[in-house]
């Protein structure tokens, strides 16, 4: 099934100057490999294309089931320069979490249910 990354991972945005730092953390270790295979630097760069990243770098932290994306030049100058309401780009983790990922049938049982 194809679902939003948000269903299988969580994350948080931080910033320094014009650089955004977005973590992506798998809810279940069983799904980490699938996420690593699909949430690539190239796809993240494409998702953020309107913000003209100078570089997108991904760091893997397998012992945490996590990865860390560092996007250079995506904050229109950052907290002091940007005209954005969200000058820090704090909301951007949830843009990344919109990315569609395909979960193989064999792993679908590891996708957490939304709690009502």
């Amino acid at each position: 099934m194809v679902i939003a990354l948000h269903r299988v991972a969580h994350g948080r945005t931080g910033d320094k100057g014009d650089r955004s730092n977005i973590s992506v953390i798998a809810y279940r270790p069983e799904l980490f490999e699938v996420i690593v295979a699909q949430v690539t630097e190239a796809r993240v760069a494409e998702l953020f294309a309107h913000r003209k990243p100078q570089a997108v770098k991904r760091y893997l932290l397998p012992k945490l089931g996590a990865m860390n994306f560092v996007l250079d030049g995506v904050l229109d100058g950052g907290v002091n320069g940007s005209l954005n309401l969200d000058t820090h780009g704090k909301t951007l983790a949830f843009l990344l979490l919109e990315l569609p990922v395909e979960i193989p049938t064999t792993l679908e049982s590891f996708v957490p249910e939304e709690k009502k």
């Binding site: 948080r12 931080g14 320094k16 973590s23 953390i25 945490l64 860390n68």
Partner: peptide
């Protein structure tokens, strides 16, 4: 584990 992981990676850029 989840709250600690989110803050551990917050603004660290290169984890190494």
């Amino acid at each position: 584990l989840a709250t600690v992981k989110e803050q551990l990676l917050y603004e660290v850029h290169d984890p190494a």
